[in-house]
Design a protein around this nucleic acid. Structure first.
Lengths: 192, 192
DNA sequence: CAAAAACCATACAGACCTGTATAGTTCGAA
DNA sequence: TTCGAACTATACAGGTCTGTATGGTTTTTG
């Protein structure tokens, strides 16, 4: 399953899909950029859609690995429990602004392939759910009333901020989203 | 500028773009669905991109007209000031779930044409800004501390909820977003 | 070394795409 | 009724797209 050409293809495709979108990125562009032959691509993937699914799976793996790492790095630094979520927000802001991405690749995939149950959409769903679960676990540690709702609200604020930045609004959107999330969490902790 | 064929084209295109996306919807599909000849299209629009811009402009007009109407309808019914924003959220939920849209057409346009300053993206930006301003005006009437930040947070929650529903998560996302927005507004009003 | 697997280069099929060219038609207004 | 504008129908140019066919080359492995 693992192969250097395959990996190169998926990584290159990830890069291009992030910047130009899925439909707007042709197979030939990916091949030219990666230096891999077309027949090799179709030896590893039955179709472009399969490649897209592999790209989304790679991205998901990358993201959660990075999130784990960021979470551990914060670990000792955050004395107040709210500090952990705040630091996570800051880290996410860096992650999302580092490469000049065009928004979130999962949200974008939902936009381009939405409205039916193809494997691409299932991957999007899987990612969104996993992210909520991750935040939920972080929140559980902070002993809030309703971690489920709060995790969903946090993810919505995050996605909303990404969309705002993508539309060309100010990058302070992330900070504004962060302060909202912290207010919500504080509200749950005081009213306990 | 106004012409029955032109209107038919834009309306049909709006419908198709909403459901299938922009790149995935060919000109010929729009022509077949609308029953208009190809030369008529290119008499009214120089290119497909121009048609897309017209579609986004129509949608923007529709949306804010509907928003005005909903806002007036609420007007007398909401006794508590928070009630107005809550009722607006409920109305937006209906607007967004009524036709089986695939998310927000402006967010989707940002996903497909992002990362440079084409006219399409400018239209997306214009919409997002106008929506923030609209909410800001509603909030000003409720005398909150920082209407600007609160309006942005509200819009982020809204966009986040739309993305969540688009990804196939529960439609209760809207209600969860609403409760977050109401908490944020209450927080600002009590701490004054 | 030899056999097998992976990969490359090129050409191409077939579909679809945007946009144009051309010629005929409807229809309202001067 | 005649002129002109808007529209239709059809064909097509030129490009791009995904995916395949073919045959040669490299790399790995037994």
């Amino acid at each position: 399953m693992a192969s250097p050409r395959r990996d190169k293809l998926v990584q290159t495709a990830l890069h291009l899909f992030c910047q130009r979108g899925f439909h707007a990125t042709g197979i030939d562009t990916i091949l030219a950029e990666s230096g891999v032959a077309k027949m090799t691509l179709y030896n590893h993937f039955a179709s472009k859609d399969e490649l897209i699914v592999a790209v989304l799976q790679l991205r998901q793996k990358q993201f959660f690995a990075w999130l784990d790492e960021a979470n551990e790095r914060i670990g000792s630094a955050a004395d107040l429990p709210e500090g952990r979520l705040g630091a996570l927000f800051d880290a996410l802001k860096v992650w999302l602004l580092e490469a000049k991405l065009n928004g979130c690749i999962f949200t974008n995939a939902g936009a381009e392939f939405g409205n039916d149950d193809n494997p691409i959409n299932q991957e999007v769903k899987r990612y969104k759910r996993a992210r909520i679960d991750y935040i939920k676990n972080v929140l559980r540690e902070l002993t809030v009333n309703d971690p489920d709702t709060l995790a969903k609200q946090t993810c919505m604020l995050l996605d909303g901020a990404i969309v705002a930045v993508q539309a060309g609004l100010e990058e302070t959107s992330f900070d504004i989203a962060k302060s909202a999330a912290l207010l919500l969490i504080a509200q749950q902790r005081t009213s306990k």
